[in-house]
Simulated assay, not measured.
Amino acid sequence: MSVFFHIGRYSLFVRQIFDKPEKHGIFARLFLRDVESLGLKSIGIVAIISVFMGAVITWQTSLNIFSPLIPRFTVGLVARDSIILEFSSTIVCLILAGRVGSNIASEIGTMRVTEQIDALDIMGINSVNYLVLPKVLACVFIFPFLVVMSMGIGLLGGWLAGLLTGLVPSDDFIYGIQYIFNPFYVVYSLIKSVIFAFIISTVSAYWGYFSSGGALEVGVASTKAVVVSSIQILLFNLLITQLLLT
């Protein structure tokens, strides 16, 4: 019963998010603040993960190709498709679920337990719309940028790994990246990034908004936000792949 209760309450919560903002100037200021705190400050961790991710994929692929009949540019091809189709869209968003999701849940949860949200409600402000809508739109706006950046840095990391280790010649790796490239793969990853951004922001805000008690309960809400967001990302990743790539 608790699962259906949360699904119903989450649906009503999402409906409240998309009410018309009361003051567009305040909304724009909150949106820009959230773009910086949730998106731009995540660039560092995304870059570090991506460069090592690309390097490991290239290294492992090249070490597992034993047959001399398989051309070396296959390493670049495998690295490109792995990074674009799955790692930069799904794995990076799972990492962002931990960083961004816990940030949103803890911020809103702290406002709940310190009665700041109650004060907004007493003043007649739609607290869900005021607090959550800027974060949702900021995530939807900035996540595709982070995913595209991850693709580029991941391929760069793979190229550097092949070059520095001598496992894959530079020309072969670059040729593999270009070989039979399907632009729809990038579109597919961007679609996933937008959906995952919506899931992370709304689910995390939901658990933070309905937290109660004190600091311990805010921590519990942050943990639930990350866990539930991650499970939903994996579930929707499977559904989107079935819909768009089969």
Rank of each mutant, 00 (worst) to 15 (best):
Q60T: 13
L238H: 12
Q232F: 13
G39A: 08
S204V: 10
I199L: 12
I142D: 02
L160N: 11
R29T: 12
A55V: 10
G213A: 05
I65D: 09
I231V: 14
L243Q: 04
F31N: 08
S82Y: 13
L69W: 09
S62I: 02
S62E: 09
F198E: 01
G208D: 01
D118C: 01
F52P: 04
I174M: 10
V35S: 09
L234H: 07
S37Q: 09
R112M: 03
A47S: 15
M111F: 08
S193H: 10
Y10A: 08
I177E: 03
Y209F: 15
I153Q: 04
E217T: 11
Q242C: 11
I153C: 05
V3Q: 04
W59S: 14
L160R: 09
I174E: 01
K41H: 10
S88I: 01
T202A: 08
D118Y: 01
I231F: 14
G219A: 11
L94E: 06
M151L: 02
L156Y: 10
I70V: 15
G39V: 02
S106L: 00
L85M: 13
S106C: 06
S201P: 02
S50L: 09
I180H: 07
L12V: 06
Q242D: 10
T114A: 04
S127I: 02
E217D: 14
L30E: 15
F210V: 05
T61Y: 00
D34I: 01
S211Y: 02
